[in-house]
Amino acid sequence: MKSPAKSFAARVRKLNQPGAAGRMTALVIPYAWLALFFLLPLLIVLKISVAESVMGIPPYEPLLRLAENATVQIHLTFSNFVLLLRDDMYVVAYLNSVKIAAISTLVSVVVGYSMAYGIVSSPLRWRYLLLMLIIIPFWTSFLIRIYAMIGFLKDNGLVNNLLMSLGVIDQPLAIMYTPLAVYIGIVYSYLPFMILPIYAALERTDPSLLEAASDLGARPWKAFLRVTLPLSMPGVVAGSLLVFIPAVGEFVIPELLGGLGSPMIGKVLWAEFFNNRDWPVASAVAVAMLALLVVPVMMFDRFASRYFRGRS
C-alpha cells in the first residue's frame, strides 16, 4: 500500500525523469483533441436525442433551464424514440440497412476472399501489379467511383448496351434505382477494404503447413478448409467489420444508386436533418444506429489493438 504522500513523491520523481514533460504533451494533445471532437460530440447527440424539438435556432429545447423560481428544470423526453418505433418508415429503413449491409458484407467476403486467394497464389512478379490494381481504387475518390457505377448500370449504360448488342436481352434491365444497384455499389466501393486484410492474412500463412497437411494425406480442398481458412480468419473478420459498419450508415450509395424501394437509415438521418430540420429526431436516429453498431465497433477496436500494435 502506498501512502498518498509517497505516491505524490513518486509522481514528482517521474516528472523529473528525462522526457517526462515531452511524454505528457505527446499524450495530452491527441487525447484532448479526440475527447473534444470525437467523444463529446457523441454525448451531445445522446443529449439532443432526448430533447424536445422546437422551431428556432438551434431547433431544440435546452435540457436544463433555470425556471422563474430559480429551480433547475430538466426537459427530458423519449418521444423521439417512441416516434422511431411507432412509425413504420424508421423501422423498415433500420431493418433494411442491417439486411443490405449484412448481405453486401457476405458477398464481399466471398468475392474478396477469392480475389485475395488468387493474388496470393499468383507468381511473385504478377503479385505486385495485382496488388497495385487493388490499392489504386482504394485511393481514388469514393464519390467518383459511385458516379462511374451510374454510367455502368443505367438503362443505356455499359452493362445494358453490352448485353443488348450481344443479343442476350431485347430491352434494358432496370438495375439503377433498385436494391440490386445498392448491393452492387456497396460491394464495388468496399471491396478493397475486404481484399487487403485477407491478403495480408493469407500472405503470412506458412506454406510448409499446407505441405505437411498434404504429406499427411489431406486433399487440397480439405487442407484449405482445415489449415488455410482458419489461419486467414483474422483477415476475414477485419474485412467484414470494415465493410459492415460503414455500410449500415451509408448515405451516398443509396442516395445516388438506390430508389424509393431501398430506404436506408443513413438516408433517413440525412432527410430528418437537412429536409425536415428536426435535429432531435435525427439525433435519435443516430443513437439507434450507434446502439446497433456499438458491439461491432468495440470488436473492431479490440481487433485493431492486437492487429496494428502487435505486441502491446
Binding site: 473534444l36 460530440p41 457523441l42 447527440v45 459498419i245 450508415g249 477496436d301 485493431a304
Partner: peptide, 20 residues
C-alpha cells in the same frame, strides 16, 4: 477513440460534430 473513427458511419460523425 483512436480506432473508432476508422469505421464510424460518416452521417454520425458529421451530425455529432455539427451539434458540437
Amino acid at each position: 477513440m483512436v480506432t473508432a473513427p476508422l469505421v464510424m458511419p460518416e452521417v454520425i460523425t458529421g451530425l455529432s460534430l455539427l451539434l458540437l
